[in-house]
Computed example of a mutant assay.
Amino acid sequence: MKLTSIKLCNFRSFYGTTPEMLLAGGDAQNTTIIHGNNGSGKTSLLNAFTWVLYDKFSAAFASIEQLVNKRAIAEAQKGQTVECWVEIGWEHEGKRYRVKRACRGYKNEGDFDA
Rank of each mutant, 00 (worst) to 15 (best):
T81F: 00
A24H: 11
T43R: 08
T43K: 07
Y54S: 12
R98W: 03
A62I: 10
G36E: 06
E91R: 12
L46W: 06
S63C: 03
G94E: 08
T31N: 08
K42T: 14
I6P: 01
S13T: 14
Q66T: 06
N47Q: 11
A74L: 02
T43L: 08
S44V: 04
M1I: 10
I33P: 04
D27T: 10
I88L: 15
N10A: 07
I33M: 14
Y15K: 10
L3V: 09
R12F: 02
R101E: 04
K107R: 15
E87D: 03
G41Q: 13
N47V: 04
I6S: 00
N30E: 14
K42F: 13
I33G: 10
A76R: 09
Q80G: 06
W51A: 03
Q66W: 06
L23G: 09
E65N: 06
A62D: 12
E83Y: 01
N69C: 14
C103Q: 06
S40R: 13
I88M: 14
Q66E: 13
V68D: 00
L23C: 12
Y97A: 07
A59L: 11
W90R: 08
S40M: 14
Y106C: 02
K7R: 15
G39S: 13
R71N: 11
T4L: 02
K7A: 09
R104M: 00
V68H: 00
I6M: 02
T18D: 01
L46N: 05
R96I: 06
Q77C: 03
Y106F: 15
A24D: 06
S44K: 04
T4N: 06
K78R: 15
V82K: 01
T17L: 10
A48G: 15
G39L: 12
F49G: 07
E65A: 05
K95Y: 07
A48S: 15
F61A: 11
G16E: 09
M1C: 08
N38W: 05
K95T: 08
G26M: 07
L67G: 10
M21E: 03
C103H: 01
A59Q: 12
C9E: 01
R96G: 08
T18A: 01
K78M: 12
K78G: 03
T31A: 15
G105S: 04
G89M: 03
Y97P: 10
N69L: 10
F14S: 09
G79P: 05
